[in-house]
Computed example of a mutant assay.
Amino acid sequence: MKRDVHATVKDERLILKRRNEMIKGAVTLFKEKGFHRTTTREIAKAAGFSIGTLYEYIRTKEDVLYLVCDHIYEEVRARLQQDLDTSQGTLDSLRAGILNFFKVMDDMQDEVLVMYQEVKSLTKDALSYVLEKEIEMVALFEQIIQSCANNGELEASGPEIKMIAHNIFVQGQMWSFRRWALRKMYTLPEYVDLQTRLLFRGLNIKTNS
């Protein structure tokens, strides 16, 4: 269940605006210093307003972390749903889905890194909520792979389809949190191509490359 973050301000548009500013500033700080070493005063300054104004939109620093994680997952899911075609059931649609997801991970690499470093600091209920969003995004890849299986493009059982979907998701995230090593060896297109070929090879699918 989505957590209700209390605000004393009633203007929904202003709440969204201020919280987006807060999230942007917090991501930079959490990346540089970590959640626990960052103060709410620093978050307010990075967002461009006073500490008093900050507390009109949240109650605790943990609220900020929750908003950051929730925002990141919503942004990733929105972009995935915009670009993924779960109905075609072709290898080309699966290949395009992998490419699009990895591009999103590249565009949002700072946010993804912060989320995986700091998500453990969320309360139990908040953690369950944001991680459930990840399961929902993995399910999008399950739908694509299942459609491919239904069309005879590949052979995979239900448990195998779930594992393939999780593997794709982790490979995309890996581009973000192991970029310090991977970028020395591959460009993003090279990384996407290699991971896709390895995936298809594991499924005994012949590729042209």
Rank of each mutant, 00 (worst) to 15 (best):
H166G: 05
L67F: 06
E118Y: 07
V170H: 07
E75R: 13
E56G: 02
N150E: 13
Q81L: 14
K61L: 05
T53C: 12
L194Q: 12
I98Y: 10
E190G: 15
V170F: 06
E155Y: 11
A96C: 00
F35L: 04
G25A: 13
L16N: 11
L84F: 08
F102H: 12
I144L: 09
Y191N: 09
L16I: 03
L182W: 02
G158H: 12
E136N: 06
M163V: 11
T86G: 01
R41N: 08
F49G: 10
A26W: 14
Q171N: 15
T187I: 11
L140M: 08
V130P: 05
K162Q: 13
E155A: 11
T207W: 05
R79N: 12
I58G: 09
G48A: 03
I23M: 07
R19M: 09
Y116C: 01
M137K: 00
K184P: 03
F49Y: 15
Y66D: 04
A149G: 07
V64H: 02
Y129F: 11
V68I: 07
Q146F: 08
S87L: 10
K2A: 13
R19T: 13
S176H: 04
A96V: 04
G25W: 08
Y55S: 07
E111Y: 03
T38S: 08
A7Y: 00
V119W: 00
E136L: 03
K61R: 14
K24R: 14
H6I: 07
R13P: 02
E142W: 02
R201I: 01
I145R: 03
K162W: 01
L84P: 12
D110I: 02
A126W: 01
I168N: 06
E153K: 15
L14Y: 10
E74R: 08
F35V: 05
V170T: 15
N151G: 06
L65E: 06
I98C: 01
V119L: 07
T207H: 08
V114L: 06
N208V: 08
A96M: 03
L99Y: 12
V68F: 07
T86Y: 12
Y129Q: 07
R178I: 04
R178S: 14
